[in-house]
Design a protein around this nucleic acid. Sequence first.
RNA 1: GGACGUUUAGCUCAGCUGGUUAGAGCGUCUCGUUUACACCGAGAAGGUCGCAGGUUCGAAUCCUGCAACGUCCACCA
Length: 902
Amino acid sequence: MDEKQLPKAYEAKQYEDEIYAAWEKSGFFNPDNLKGKPFTIMMPPPNVTGVLHLGHALENALMDCMARYQRMRGEKVLLIPGTDHAALPTQAKVEKMLMQKGMKNPRQELGRDKLVEKIREFAEESRTTILSQIKKIGTSCDWSRLAYTFDDARNRAVNELFCRMYKDGLIYRGYRVVNWSVKGQSTSSDDEIIFIERPAKLYTFKYSSNFPIAIATTRPETKLGDTAVAVHPSDSRYAPYIGQVFTVDVGAAKPLQIKIIADEQVDPEFGTGALGVTPAHSSVDFAMYEKQKAKGEPIDLIPVIGLDGKMTAEAGADYVGLSVEEARAKFVLWLKEQNLLLNEEDITQNVGTSDRYGDVIESIPMTQWWLDVNKKIPSKGKSLCDLMREAVTTGLDGDSSKIVTITPDRFKKLYLDRVDHLRDWCLSRQIWWGHRIPVWYKQMSEVGDQKSETIFVGATAPEGDGWQQDPDTLDTWFSSGSWTFSTLGWPEQTKDLKTFHPTQWIQMGYEILYLWLMRMILMSAYALDEIPFKDAYIHGMLRDKNGNKFSKSSGNGIDPIDVIDEYGSDALRISLLIGTSPGNDARYYTEKIESGRNFVNKLWNISRFVLTSTDMLSPELVEGVKPQTLADRWILSRFATVTKEVTDHLEKYEFSQAGEKLRDFTWNEFADWYLEIAKIQKQEERSKKNETDKILLYILQNLLILWHPFMPFVTEVIWKNISKDLLIVQPWPSDKSKNVDQTSEQNFSRIQQLIVAIRNIRAQYKVRPEKKVDIRLQSSDKKVRQLLQENITIIKTLARANDIEITDEIAEPKFGCALAALEKITIHVMLPNEDLESEMERIKKECQSLEVYIKTTETKLENKEFVSNAPAHIVATMKAKLQEAKEKFETICTQFKKQNNK
RNA sequence: GGACGUUUAGCUCAGCUGGUUAGAGCGUCUCGUUUACACCGAGAAGGUCGCAGGUUCGAAUCCUGCAACGUCCACCA
């Protein structure tokens, strides 16, 4: 092996692009070129609102780790990449950019087609960047199946779903109170509202001096549209008034007819115990309005706030055209003048804001398209909510093979709570970037004021003239909800769909549990009678080193590509995978990436040593290895155990623990001990050298395989020196448990402890490293003496000893000699410099800690209840440990005392 | 107002169904130019596992209560 091929330090930048290209060319990203059982992962499509951030890097690391692991396990892995057109967020972003460039109202100034074109340009640019970033991270996805939530194939799926749901009566057009963003001039769903706390004033007032009930409100201006006062049915204070109607004039266009109604929702303890009902501008009040209508005791609905956020004509001549704030001030002033204001109180209230436009959401009644989540689906006899519930509990239709498991499982509870309180989903948006609602209208006749409209629901307009498509677009989550199957060709019954759905595993952040996970389950259960995925792995958010969210406004954003440029993709990946646990937020800081980079370099140098120091000209895959020495048996045993542990952890999606165990083995056992011992063994007989080389190669090769899912690039680069085949499809190590050898592990551990004890003494007495010391090892156990004898070269070299005497003869330590004891071994280290005082101090300390341990352990063992209740092996190990401690104590203390007497 | 999460070494975090003298990485201290690696090696120091009770032979781990921090949800108008 030529050392020039392997420079001293691994420079990730020199290799990564080339390696990725080689993988792509190999075709192994495409499951059509793989055998085995299908294993599908759908990439959560990043929004084309910008470029990838560190959170995406984490997602890609997780997905790719799983994909590569499964591929090496021999599965037919499909990881479909994609992007999300993110309807409202993208339009909001582009509009904002245009406005920053000076445009006042992009929609007005550009018109639908031109604005959509601008957004498309922006989205395409983002898309290109995002896709190249995904490659940089190393994600092994099938680019031949690349999907986009806004391409033709996905549009077909969206239209098909909409039409089916309409035919099933689940999608309906309804006049109801919606969440309206004045700034964005669009509706939004309940999930897209962010509640913020803000100070507000709670006003208590009466509509008129002779009105019998006072009410409290934080929105006085909406009271111009009040049509009822609701009280609790059992509230005796107001019971006599229930059913009565009062006419009051508060300055609105017409005097208000206020009916006193009873409703359980009213809290008699809050405020005056009476609630002014504004059906047009509160979803709660609107619900009362509907209830009253159903009861046959209808109340009116008067919209006083318009889509422009200004007061309408209905609010009265004094108010029309005013903003809500102006109207509020004016109305409060009027109340004061009329002596109707009874109280004014400062409170904090939660107010809903648009997650994209940031303005306060107004409740306004409008005709929109809705998805009914509680109505029974005709063919199923169950509602969408029922299906969503079944999917995580009994399995769809009670079929236990159709259960979605959520890791960690606490998120299952959150999910179920949400399903129980789910309300109808407002699907239509008044923006232009998105899937157009597949509904067509035609005006049929006009009789006086009555317009009669015919509705047609379908992807394309029916025959004939005069059909107008609904101008609105669909909520972006309507298209991402079908992601797991629209990417596979649905509604066509494609081979892909049959092969790869339901998918096996998906990962996502907890922040889109409601927005996305839920809707994927809804869509898939509805359209396919299937779950979208078997296991959902929920990860937390990445925060900066102070625990703050990464955000553009605080300017703490980090571009993962910059990190990759500096430290390499592998370093970034392992530092994101190790030290994080599912569902919990994690902090990102540079030191972590540095330590990742250091480890990558360590593995590089381990490989460099193994590959350049073995004689094998072409180091082919090593199959059978024959351990010759204790160290050989130990490392093979340990490796077998670690292989099993890593595999088990990955099966349970415990990425962090798998990576940690692998790192500890690689660094602390293989590199720090076995490599050093290998150097010694290789200088011994010829036969040993060959076997040592084989073992080194064997472990290295398998380590590269185990590490590949975590650090695909560096492992693949090293693998080039081993085989012409790519590492990406090397089979995962099979069960090696036949190599597990407890005895050798125990014996080797004894040698390790001995070496550490001697090194410890050397460090304590500041023995210069080049100075070799004489050592006397005493043991009454023949087997132990034999063990020491067999490994004497290793002890000598690693502990830097000159002469080692192994004997069964108990002797008092000589003057100027340091003393240590292990189980069945007494160690005398001859010190070149005589430092009796600190030796006595050191031994005294050790005696004390031994004494404490012996005492507590003895107490435990004397406890009869402990001995009878605790499992036998616990008691046995404790007894053995106690014995060992006693022996140590005996050796050290008695000999120390003798020495002390001199 | 509810629910959930977190609280373990100076910092960032692991610790699965309770069982050896509680771990890792970074940082700190001492020593070191041993031909794989200073992006390194050797050794060490550092924790009454947030607080208070309880269950148990045994609790960081289970139960109850409390506190601090965080997140989500909710129609106190």
